[in-house]
Design a protein around this nucleic acid. Sequence first.
DNA 1: GTTGGGAGAATTTTT
DNA 2: TTCTCCCAAC
Length: 647
Amino acid sequence: MTDYSKLLNPEQCEAATAGEGPLLVLAAAGTGKTRTLVYRVAYLVERGERPDGLLLLTFTNRAAREMLERAKEVAGDAVGNLLSGTFHHVCNRFLRRFGDRLGYPNDFTILDRDDSHALIDRCIKDTVRNKKDFPKKDVISSLIGSAANRACDIEDVLEQTVQELRVDPMEIIKVANLYAERKLAMGAMDFDDLLVNGLRLLVEHESVRDFYQNRFRHVLVDEYQDTNLLQARMVDILGGRSRNVMAVGDDFQCIYSWRGADFKNIMEFPKRWDGCRIVKLERNYRSVPEVLAVANACIQGNPEQFQKTLRPTRKARNKPQVFFLRDGDEQARAVLAMIRRYQEDGYALRDMAVLYRAHFHSIELQMMLGRARLPFVITSGIGVFEQAHVKDVVAFLRVCENRSDRMAFGRLLGMLSGVGEKTVDALWETLNGRFETSDPQQRARLVAALKPAARGQWQEIDRLMDEYHRERLATAGGEAVQRFCDVFYHTYLAKVYDNAERREEDIRELALQIGKSEGGVAGFLQEVALLTNVDHEYDKMAREHADMLRLSTVHQAKGLEWPVVIVIWASEGMFPSSRSMGESEDDAEERRLFYVAVTRAKDELVLCAPEMRRTRDGGVFFCKPSRFIKELPRGLTRESYGFRGGY
DNA sequence: GTTGGGAGAATTTTT
DNA sequence: TTCTCCCAAC
């Protein structure tokens, strides 16, 4: 039995080894939140809890995987296969098993953002008469999404926004209803549906609720401050019987309210759970005191939160630096020079990160780094699995595996020349709404229905589908992808894209990854839509051990840390972002975001504030240094004006 | 109905 | 610079 009091500080230990009952852990940044959760899992298993009686909800799949690995190191493989992952992932599991109760097939497909937008667009075209004045699909999509995540009807959302849109709300409701209808008809769910339906299963079906309430003796939730209403309800229900709910989070770090997250969930957790114990973690092991002083000072501007103060444990070192710079160009040169200097001081590139509010803030820097041949990785805006060419290839697999996957069918057939939306509709009709690729007759029917030009291209794919089932390639998905590329996609890529080579490399990379995935092609397909670039890169980085500088948005840097952190574009309008300031009256969320950025730094923190921004068409406008810098009391930072190629 | 060209717009954060 | 939309020609 592990002696936890030797491995953890008193507060961490109290949380990790707490007895039964609800527990709220308020863990400020860098105070060993993950460590506490890991040991909590290990402790429970050592105490004889069955691993499959534990549910661990995390913000990314990667976080779940890391925690499990570490828990295994402590308590051995007994930790085994407890259910863990994001809310979306866990709901996906629930729905694969019980989705039929809600009228979904067990092999329902998941629509990613692109799929869902495309479908909404078609719904608009099919219902709306004067499309000119009607809002674009993105707007409609976000209306539908925010209704789902706030667990209210679209009418309620419309009431607040419809004046500005000046459209007949009935039309929007019609589109939304049609969208819902079509999703159900094709057995598909979008991201929001996963949560909505996951919760519906628990609320509407007593037997399912019983099943999971009995199964999960302990529910542990990481990053609880970023849960939305649906997620909080789900946790409340899942823990309803055992009352063993452990929520871990930091209200200072709630940065996803634009997606429906509501930090009231964490504020009111003690009210909802009678007899809830609260443990505060305030001892920070990550950052030097000077960084913590800045962090504490910047969050002061936000009232109405749980009072927490980061208490340092590390020795004093350097004060954070603030650079006031002329423009983005000077900033890029300054950043490059700093990085070189830190390298001389003994930091590796992988020890450093450049953080920013929005992806496009980093373009100048990317070009500068490229010219200087300094290796860097970006946690990019578009997910690996959202890119067109990856989706094309995945569509082929989906069609092979799932005869009723309408979206994939459309995508695959649409690659043939002369085939567009309407033709796909007609073909799907000819096949009576399903395409069984293992059935030679059905395949022949499709071939016969194609126009000559398309038929020629399709024949190769048709043959491959035959091989797919004959040779059981479902267990060797990598091979299937390779062949698809050889017989068809290689040519298609060259025809459609000018950077075909790079995209083909991606495909070969993908083939490798599918080959490794447990559960073969089917297992891979059930999860693809939920994999994020962060999850993906984790594998890639681990494999390459590359020493590279990291460029990332603050959002994607959540939960990570680096010895050196450089924040760029800490200027009014950029950070805080003028866009987000428009909707919500106050800047509380932006300030929390800034707090997250600051608390990523272990040793060195640099804040850059350029005061001039150039637009594409050659215009310039000036921006003051960020209010988050201005708010800092004097003396906490070292300030420099301009950058003249040296220090 | 499909495709490709050309004009135009436009840049938050993501499961 | 890149993506998106719209329209006109096949």
